[in-house]
Simulated scan of single mutants.
Amino acid sequence: MLQSLYYRFVESPILLRIFIIAVFFITLFGTAVHIIEPATFPTVFEGIWWAVVTASTVGFGDYAPKTTTGRILGIGLIFAGAGFLSAYFINLAASAVTLQNSLREGKAMYTNKNHLVIVGWNERTKEIIDHLHTLSFSRHIVLVDESLGANPYSEKRVHFIQGAPYKDETLKKANIKDAATALVTSDQNKNEMHADMNSILTLVAIKGSNPSLHCIVEILTNDQVVNAERAGADEIIQTNKHASSVMLNSIQQEGVSSSLMNLMDPANGGFLKPIMPEKDWIGAAFGELAVTLLKERTLLIGIQREGETFINPPLSLQISQSDELLVIQH
Rank of each mutant, 00 (worst) to 15 (best):
I216R: 04
I72C: 05
N240L: 11
I161G: 00
G76V: 09
R230V: 06
H330V: 07
L92E: 11
H159P: 01
H159K: 03
Q253S: 07
L183Q: 02
P42T: 15
L326Q: 14
A32M: 14
I20E: 02
T31L: 09
V10D: 03
V44L: 13
L263W: 15
V10F: 11
T185K: 01
V142I: 15
I78D: 02
G30K: 01
F45I: 09
A174M: 04
L203E: 00
N198K: 11
Q100C: 15
E218R: 03
G255S: 10
R139G: 00
Q329P: 02
P38G: 07
E278D: 13
V23K: 10
I219Y: 01
S102P: 05
K279M: 15
W49H: 04
N122K: 09
E11L: 05
D62T: 15
I275L: 06
T68E: 14
D196E: 10
D187A: 05
G283P: 01
N222R: 11
G81E: 03
I26P: 00
F271E: 08
T111M: 05
N122I: 03
I128A: 03
T98A: 06
I236E: 01
I251G: 09
F84I: 08
V291N: 09
M264F: 10
L294S: 15
Q252C: 09
K156E: 09
G269V: 08
L294W: 04
V97H: 13
I75F: 14
L2R: 10
G74C: 02
V204P: 02
K172Q: 14
E288C: 03
L77Q: 00
G307R: 08
H242V: 12
N101G: 13
P266M: 06
I118A: 06
A94D: 05
M264K: 04
G59L: 08
L183S: 00
D187I: 00
E46S: 14
A164D: 12
G30P: 01
G149N: 10
V33W: 01
A182D: 00
L326R: 02
D223F: 04
F45A: 15
N222P: 04
L77G: 00
T57S: 11
A93M: 07
G269L: 14
N101F: 10
T202V: 12
T67I: 11
G47C: 04
K190P: 00
Q304C: 14
I282D: 05
T292I: 12
Q100P: 02
A231S: 12
S56H: 12
